[in-house]
Design a protein around this nucleic acid. Structure first.
Lengths: 155, 155
DNA sequence: TTGAAATGGTACTAATTTAGTTCTATTATT
DNA sequence: AATAATAGAACTAAATTAGTACCATTTCAA
């Protein structure tokens, strides 16, 4: 299985397309452009609208318009709106609920939590703006709370 | 769904447990310790053995022994051995095979590839050694080819 | 005023993947 | 000879994802 669900993937296509079409677009148009199931895409767009990414209007010339700024839409947000928040393993829920029987002696608990944080940081840090224009990367320094100095001799 | 499958999670438990038990351990022991389905865990251990992480010996006092160094076992390796290599979206395969109909005008292709690389870098960089001892992190500088300077004023 | 094209909402179904089981064979120890 | 382990393969069940279907409402235009 892929890390991103198809819903997630299609949502990014939708948001990107709408960013390039400020006057809006319909599910029909987008499904045709990318050869995607129309009713499936329509459901995704309903969800995106419901979560405040898009505004809609009905009727013959209806459709959706992107109403949030690309730089304010993080991958983690979209993920949470469409599927569920990111988590590394099943057992993270058990640990939170304190029902994990190995909680007190789990040899990987701390280490996994570190990996979890590193991936989550990427998801919270990368926005639609960066997906649209990958040359913009305001991310690394924020990501680690560190200052970066380029390393001339590194191959 | 979780990022790591249960197989992946259990495999990390197995590897960690065996690292702490250099004389080896059996599927029975480990399944009992962590309250995990024995036959399921047994299958996972067979796979780990098959892929060269463990050596096995049969018989009454048989079991498995960890034969690879923790610092040489990256998360990406385990993932590939048990499930499949990491990929961000379904369509990455289409793009590779050049069967993606939107290949030439996909607005998110490049951006997504950047995200893919960043996550994959983590998976290739984090080893069992780091999972076992999270204070050891030889990773960030290698990860970005940059030199890190701590930033005193950052909150 | 009627028909077409759009979204809104909900429920349902099909396909796929993951998780787990079962069975038989082989090996080693006591 | 009994027991406890791995080896290997095939199978089943549960859960998740992907996708449909239906009906209602809104809007526009002929």
């Amino acid at each position: 299985m892929s890390f991103f669900s198809r819903k997630m993937d299609y949502a990014l296509l939708v948001l990107s397309h709408l960013h390039g079409n400020p006057d809006g677009s319909s599910a029909r148009e987008i499904s045709a452009k990318f050869s995607i199931s129309r009713p499936f895409l329509a459901n995704i767009m309903k969800t995106l609208c419901h979560h405040g990414y898009l505004s809609s209007h009905r009727g013959v010339h209806g459709g959706y318009v992107l109403i949030r700024k690309p730089e304010d839409i993080a991958l983690a947000d979209i993920m949470q709106s469409l599927d569920e928040p990111f988590h590394l393993t099943d057992c993270s829920k058990d640990i939170e609920k304190q029902t994990c029987s190995a909680r007190n002696f789990c040899p990987i608990r701390t280490g996994m939590s570190g990996v979890h944080d590193r991936i989550r940081t990427i998801l919270k840090d990368v926005t639609l703006a960066e997906i649209l224009d990958p040359t913009i990367r305001p991310s690394i320094s924020r990501q680690f709370g560190l200052e970066l100095v380029s390393h001339g001799t590194h191959k």
